[in-house]
Write a protein that binds this DNA or RNA. Structure first.
Lengths: 329, 329
DNA sequence: TCAAGATGCTAATTCGAATTATTGCAGGCT
DNA sequence: AGCCTGCAATAATTCGAATTAGCATCTTGA
């Protein structure tokens, strides 16, 4: 196997010193550093011909920019079961990375201790990347805390509670999106609401439920929360509008209601809150909102750039888009 | 940002040298290297107390392996239009990379000159990775030649003709798979065959057509090749069995035949040769074969490992799996 | 008792690139 | 001639960990 080229090799070929190659490569023009145009050209020509690229490892040891952005997920991203969830985010990430001229490093090497990947294993490679985008419904609190204390630049996709300090993130504004749905339903005359879904655990769930509670309180209407949906109990309780965290749960409710000969939205309105951790039937035209996944991916990379350049802690929530379906009336 | 601890720091705290810390850390017991148990214990205690972890960057610098595998595609991989094509391969690649303890670098930074990425652009970053897996229906011959002459370790997914030298690849054995289909059809009494599809351009197309020609010649039956399918002309020519390179073409033929009131496979047998560059209707139960995409991804990474370790030029064809559909009779 | 061997550790070097301090060399000026 | 100035390029050092050669010190065995 051909040995990897080094700056020393390039230097020899161009008849200059290694230092000169480095200076040319980094296009240094500072005071005190001067390279004659013809020398520069000669070095560049050798670099072009050989396709030399600086060893990112060695470079990293010194300077701190590789133009490599890490993408960490707790599970493999490509299996089709996850693809539906990860894909839109990755699409945005890839797009923005391309724009920023960065390559993406997928941390596939993270030791799968107990089936799940870990950010910090015995020889964590997270520092290979300039910074890192974290992707997943819920992230390990300890991992986040360690990222913060070790000062590793990262951005979470999805809002995160503090973990020993504010966590940089690009999330979706679930409270606002849920409030909007409740507002619309109230305007149509609904007075008894139910929220179906976990409503706890991951921040995304908690945020939705919080939005729901705020909205029903603001309108002075009735709102209950049940983790699992039973169509019967909902109807018995006189509920007229259900907000389902999971799209698939919402769809199941609609189908169940129609099977009973009930009309949706005539007898019951069903609103979907965008979560898609499980595949949902496509043929139910749910009213609700969509999560701007692709945009979140893009913005996360932009935010990461900001972290890297300015050392800030960006926190941003993107608005969800209302979807005019046929299950609210 | 807390400064990271170094082995030097640990050494100072334990009252030993940096070298000793390294030896303890790596648990070296080789001949000529000995550390007294109490010294070892003292160092380990300091490491435990401080939570020191070796800087992976510095470590990599020394052993010349970045443990980064590149994945190059001529287009973005995540957009849903391509996802169906790339996904199974990537799944296998990711799986095997995880096993090998390597991370995946997606070359998203490759300049999109004329919409298409280039392996060798002005500042190609291909050498960032230890080696590279190439993915795509057809690869640029000049790119392949350059990879070979520059001695960049790589493996192509899909068989490739020589490009100034043998190209390391992991492909699918199309000739065998096509011959198998023809054999089965001949056994069922078919004597007039047609091959529908490009049959040229990409190696994958050419290989299929070659298998077809060999098979019809071996059986002494009639076999013609047409780039585009016209149901009428096929029937006029007395064809009883059609092999469609593209699954979608095969499906279209079946649907067209049924629309005319013909029976498939009663009046016409249709066999699909696995190519899926266009989305195909799911509701046609075609007989044919499937390409072991996921396995190809896995094997490609294994082959790349071999290239990296032994400098060989692996070439391998994986068998396609026969699919018992309902369009052969 | 003294050379041979075992033991325990460290100094010095390496990896590849970035950076700083320094040297060499024209040419201009007095 | 002697001296500075400005420019070009290089030697030397740095980063953190791994490794090799080698230096003390301590045991043995004859």
């Amino acid at each position: 196997m051909a040995k990897r080229l080094t700056q020393q090799d390039i230097a020899r070929m161009a008849g200059v010193s290694q230092a000169t190659v480095s200076l040319v490569l980094n296009n240094r023009q500072d005071a005190g550093v001067r390279i004659a145009p013809e020398t520069r050209a000669r070095v560049l020509e050798v670099i072009r011909k050989t396709g030399y690229v600086a060893n990112p490892i060695a470079r990293r040891l010194h300077d701190h920019r590789n133009r490599i952005l890490g993408v960490f997920t707790y599970e493999a991203v490509f299996p089709s079961t996850r693809a539906d969830f990860y894909q839109p985010f990755l699409e945005g990430i890839e797009e923005q990375a391309e724009e920023a001229g960065c390559d993406l490093l997928l941390f596939t090497s993270a030791k799968a201790a107990g089936g799940r990947r870990r950010i910090f294993s015995d020889d964590s490679r997270i520092r290979l990347a300039d910074g890192c985008v974290l992707l997943g419904r819920s992230l390990d609190r300890d991992d986040l805390a360690q990222l913060l204390t070790e000062g590793i630049p990262f951005v979470s996709i999805g809002r995160r509670d503090d973990a020993g300090g504010p966590v940089p993130h690009v999330g979706a504004d679930y409270p606002a999106a849920v409030r909007d749905l409740v507002d619309r339903a109230v305007a149509l005359g609904h007075r008894r609401f139910a929220y179906v879904g976990a409503g706890t655990g991951a921040e995304s769930s908690a945020d939705r439920l919080r939005g729901f509670r705020e909205a029903v309180a603001a309108h002075g209407v009735e709102g209950t929360h049940v983790p699992f949906a039973g169509l019967g109990q909902l109807l018995d309780a006189g509920i007229t509008a259900v907000l389902a965290e999971e799209v698939s749960d919402g769809a199941a409710l609609v189908l169940a209601a129609r099977e009973r000969g009930l009309s949706v939205p005539g007898d019951l309105s069903v609103l979907a809150l965008g979560a898609a951790t499980r595949p949902a039937p496509r043929d139910v035209d749910l009213t609700g909102f969509t999560i701007p996944r692709r945009e979140m991916g893009r913005r996360a990379v932009q935010a990461l750039t900001e972290v890297l350049e300015k050392g800030t802690t960006p926190q941003e929530l993107l608005a969800c888009r209302f979807v005019e379906g046929s299950t609210l009336g």
